[in-house]
Structures are given as structure tokens and as C-alpha cells.
């Protein structure tokens, strides 16, 4: 599939000293949602600023929609939508902010009106439309900031931590709406600190640290590769007092990180859970304890993130 974004060996430093983007390489396919994850100052926002033609890069390749960002700024800017990390709004009413966007992006008036009505409804902004932007809460402003981008058509949507300050329901609504738009061909480059939402929305994820890409893949690939610690939970009912040595008989000590024996549940944390499960169940059976529930917790993207960044 064609690349909507192609970044190769990209370098950006500030004042020739602080390297913000350090030989970064990644690509985003058309219609894909790609998440850039990283700690504060990892280079995510700088990468978005380069790709949206806001700042220049030092070396490497940065192509958007097949166009070099350093030479085709005007063409690229016509075809993208951007939600910056910082607040960005006009000092007027919510309604006017939408209208102005339609006018500035040359959306025909009738179409702009119908889009505005639809977005106001979808993003639950109807009650706020007469309010001035500075009277809104942080989350409400962010909602307007994301919603008004859909006033105009775009091939790629760049979102730099767009859900900060939003309540969980609205966050989910916005993510779902973005997902539906990608089905129509829109590509998304998304940065977030919220790993749960990256897990929910992103087709692929790139983790950056100190400007370098340190891991990349689908959420499940990353979890398999890096999310080594998993928890085995076994529910049971028995009058017999269970001891640790009963459970861990013939289990390699090195495979066990932590064990907790509760009144109705045993949990075992292991780096090699596949080696542990059958032996632990056999041991329980051997002492006459019947398990009524067996569950293995999947690793979260948080686990992956921590592990990759620590590495």
C-alpha cells in the first residue's frame, strides 16, 4: 500500500546542539492510524511540526503524500488537518470558530453549515455554541479544536495529544469518529501519553525516546515482544491451607517473579508464563485443590512502554 507519510533518517536539532529528532525512520500507510508514543521531550511534537511544514529539519527525508515537506509546503498544507498540543482558538464564539474554519478552508457555505451542525451534534457542542472560547473549560476547548478540523476535507490528520482534558466518554467518541474517517481513506498520525487510547485506536505504534525510534509494531506484536511479565490467576475453593512450596514444586525459581496466595485466588507473576501454567495446575491438582477459574492477564502497552524506554 502507498505511504502517506515517509520519514527516513530524519534529524532535527535546535541551535545545533539539542537533538530533538535523531535519525528517525518510519512510514505510515494510506488509511492507517499510526501512533507515536514517547515521554515528554521525546521528539514527537517536533516530528509533527516538521511533517506539517512548520519547522525545517536538518537532514534526512520527510515526505507527506509523496511530497517533500521542505519544498511543497503549500500543497501539503492544503491537504492536512492539524490539532496542536497547545490551545489554538479565535477569540470569538464556538459557532464563529466553526464558521471561520469553513470560510478559511474555502468550504462552500451550505456545506459548511451542514458540517457545522453535524459536528456540533456529534461532539456535543450545541449547548456551547453561543459561548466565547475563553469561557470554556480546557476539555471543551479541546473538543472544539478537534471537531472544527473536520469542517474541511483532509488526506492526513495530525493529532498531537488531542485528548488531554477530555472525559472518557467524549474521548471514546472522538477516537471512534476518527476511526470511521480512516475507513474513508484518511490517514492519521497520532501522539499521546495515554497508552490505553493508543492501544485502542492505532493500527501501528512507534515508540520514540530521545528522538530515536526504539520500537515499532502493532500493539499485539509489541506486547508479545516486550510485554514479558504476565500474571496467572487461578480461582479456587478449598478448606486446605495452601502453601507456596505446594504450588511451585518442580517450577524453576527463575521463572517466578511474584506469588500471592489469597483465600479464593492465587496469582503468579512470571516472565515465562507458558513454562509455569501447566506445572502449577498439576501441583494444585496433586494436593486436591480444584480450580474454578483460570485467567492469564495480557501485558498492557504500559508494560511494553516501560520496558522499551528503560532499555
Amino acid at each position: 500500500m502507498e505511504d502517506a507519510i515517509f520519514v527516513d533518517d530524519l534529524v532535527k536539532s535546535y541551535d545545533g546542539r539539542k537533538i530533538a529528532v535523531d535519525h528517525l525512520t518510519f512510514n505510515v500507510k494510506k488509511g492507517e492510524i499510526y501512533g507515536l508514543l514517547g515521554r515528554n521531550g521525546a521528539g514527537k511534537s517536533t516530528t509533527i511540526k516538521i511533517l506539517t511544514t512548520l519547522i525545517k529539519y536538518d537532514s534526512g527525508i520527510a515526505n507527506v503524500l509523496g511530497l517533500d515537506v521542505s519544498r511543497n509546503g503549500s500543497e501539503i498544507r492544503r491537504r492536512i488537518g492539524v490539532v496542536q498540543q497547545e490551545e489554538a482558538f479565535d477569540f470569538t464564539t464556538v459557532d464563529n470558530n466553526f464558521k471561520l474554519y469553513g470560510m478559511m478552508w474555502e468550504v462552500p457555505r451550505e456545506e459548511a453549515n451542514s458540517r457545522k451542525e453535524m459536528l456540533m451534534e456529534l461532539f456535543e457542542l450545541n449547548e456551547l455554541k453561543k459561548k466565547r472560547m475563553y469561557d470554556l473549560s480546557g476539555g471543551q476547548k479541546k473538543r472544539v479544536q478537534v471537531a472544527r478540523e473536520f469542517m474541511h476535507d483532509m488526506d492526513i490528520f495530525f493529532l498531537d495529544e488531542p485528548t488531554v482534558g477530555l472525559d472518557p466518554i467524549m474521548r471514546r467518541n472522538i477516537l471512534d469518529y476518527i476511526k470511521t474517517q480512516t475507513k474513508k481513506g484518511m490517514t492519521v498520525l497520532f501522539t499521546t501519553q495515554n497508552l490505553e487510547e493508543a492501544d485502542y485506536i492505532c493500527d501501528r505504534i512507534g515508540i520514540v525516546n530521545n528522538g530515536k525510534k526504539v520500537a515499532e509494531g502493532t500493539s499485539s506484536n509489541l506486547k508479545t515482544k516486550y510485554g514479558a511479565l504476565r500474571t496467572l490467576k487461578i480461582g479456587y475453593s478449598s478448606d486446605r491451607k495452601i502453601e507456596q512450596k505446594d504450588i511451585l514444586k518442580n517450577v524453576d525459581d527463575e521463572d517466578i517473579i511474584e506469588i500471592d496466595i489469597g483465600e479464593s485466588e492465587i496469582s503468579v507473576v512470571s516472565g515465562k508464563i507458558e513454562n509455569v501454567v501447566s506445572q502449577v495446575l498439576q501441583n494444585l491438582s496433586a494436593i486436591g485443590v480444584k480450580s474454578d477459574k483460570i485467567m492469564i492477564d495480557n501485558p498492557t502497552l504500559d508494560d511494553v512502554f516501560m520496558k522499551v524506554i528503560e532499555k
Binding site: T52, T53, L54, S74, R77, R78, I80, V82, Q84, E86, E87, A88, F89, D90, F91, M104, W105, E106
Partner: peptide, 13 residues
């Protein structure tokens, strides 16, 4: 208020 940056990544020079 962030609009300068937003306009600069919009369809304007």
C-alpha cells in the same frame, strides 16, 4: 493563543 501556528500549517503562506 496558538492561532498563528495553526494558520501557518493551514492553506496559507
Amino acid at each position: 493563543w496558538g492561532m498563528f501556528e495553526r494558520i501557518m500549517v493551514g492553506p496559507f503562506r
